[in-house]
Amino acid sequence: MSATIVIADDHPLMLRGLSDFISSKGYTILGKAEDGKTAYNLIVKHNPDIAILDIRMPYLTGLEVAYECKKNNLSTKVILITFDNEEHLYDKAKEYNVYGYILKEFAIEEIETCIEHTKRGEPYFSEEIASYLNSKLSYTDTALIELLTKSELKIVKLLAHSMSSNQIAEHLNCSVRTIEKHRSNIVKKLKLEKSHNALMIWANLNKDLLESVIAP
């Protein structure tokens, strides 16, 4: 069975690319928007099965649209697509009954699977995110102090504030190569996936824990 969909993204190329891909898979696009307010109006007008929304859009964010859908008891299921990997956004997404949460870099690869899960009423989070959601706060501050060196704790704390390796190197007055070596070691110690964003996502999800850690 197909699904009716409204899609919204304030980046025209992303909007067109996703729309074309979704249409090619046999789904019916009932409307497209480049801002949240227009997206919400389309949802109210067409009552689609699914709304695929960018989180950061003008007028209303994807999260705010999801909130309005929940508040007004709309049956449309919301999928969010985002570059963001911040913990509070995941929490809000779950609070607002969002069914799908996909990182933009994996959108084309994962959107069809996400839609199929959502049609069945099954939440779907990008694989890149899911393991970190499941492992959220799986360490105590004491365990982290025992596991990571003082330098590694400094680096992961700075990663939690979305600093790049270049920015961290400048902040700590060392080379980027040194920071990358530390990051590689931290990934091994925390048993994370060996992808570029893995440690950044983990750090963001555990920001509160990291703030409570006092390095030895």
Score class of each variant (00 low, 15 high):
Val6Glu: 06
Leu153Thr: 07
Arg183Cys: 12
Met163Glu: 11
Gly36Asp: 08
Lys70Trp: 00
Pro48Leu: 05
Ser151Met: 09
Asp35Arg: 13
Lys189Met: 08
Cys174Phe: 08
Glu105Thr: 02
Val6His: 08
Thr178Gly: 06
Thr82Cys: 09
Phe21Cys: 06
Asn166Cys: 07
Ala8Arg: 02
Ile22Pro: 03
Tyr101Met: 09
Thr4Ser: 15
Arg177Leu: 11
Thr76Leu: 03
His46Ser: 12
Ala198Arg: 06
Met163Cys: 08
Leu133Gln: 11
Ala39Arg: 04
Asn173Thr: 14
Leu137Cys: 08
Asp49Leu: 03
Ser2Phe: 04
Ser126Ile: 00
Ile111Asn: 07
Leu192Lys: 10
Glu34Val: 04
Gly31Asp: 06
Ser2Asn: 10
Gly17Asp: 10
Lys181Cys: 05
Ala51Trp: 01
Gly31Val: 02
Lys119Met: 11
Gly36Val: 04
Ala169His: 12
Leu209Thr: 11
Ile115Leu: 04
Ile102Gly: 01
His161Ile: 01
Ser195Asn: 14
Cys114Trp: 00
Tyr101Gln: 03
Ser23Arg: 03
Ile22Tyr: 06
Tyr67Leu: 14
Leu205Val: 01
Asn134Ser: 07
Ser2Val: 03
Ala3His: 05
Leu209Ile: 15
Val78Phe: 05
Phe125Tyr: 14
Lys188Leu: 11
Ser195Ala: 10
Phe106Pro: 00
Lys71Gly: 03
Gly62Glu: 07
Met200Ala: 13
Ile79Gln: 03
Lys70Ser: 07
Thr61Asp: 08
Gly100Val: 06
Asp54Glu: 08
Leu30Gly: 05
Ser195Leu: 05
Arg120His: 12
Glu127Met: 00
Cys174Ile: 10
Glu128Ser: 11
Ala160Arg: 04
Thr142Tyr: 12
Lys154Thr: 13
Glu170Lys: 15
Met57Cys: 09
Ile186Val: 12
Glu122Thr: 15
Lys119Leu: 03
Ser131Tyr: 08
Lys94Thr: 00
Val44Ala: 06
Thr140Phe: 06
Leu158Arg: 12
Asn173His: 15
Lys154Met: 11
Lys191Tyr: 12
Glu146Arg: 15
Ala215Lys: 13
Val176Trp: 01
Asn185Ala: 14
Leu133Ser: 03
Leu103Trp: 00
Leu60Ala: 11
Leu60Trp: 10
Lys194Thr: 14
Ile43Lys: 06
Asp208Phe: 07
Asp9Thr: 04
Ile55Thr: 07
Lys154Cys: 01
Asn166Ser: 15
Ile22His: 04
His196Asn: 10
Leu199Thr: 02
Ala130Gly: 00
Lys194Arg: 13
Lys188His: 15
Ala107Ser: 12
Met200Gln: 13
Gly100Ile: 04
Tyr59Arg: 12
Ile186Asn: 08
Ala143Ile: 01
Asp208Glu: 13
Glu86Arg: 15
Gly121Met: 08
Tyr96Asn: 01
Ile168Val: 14
Ile7Trp: 00
Ile50Asp: 02
Val187Met: 13
Gly31Ala: 09
Ser23Thr: 08
Leu199Glu: 02
His182Val: 02
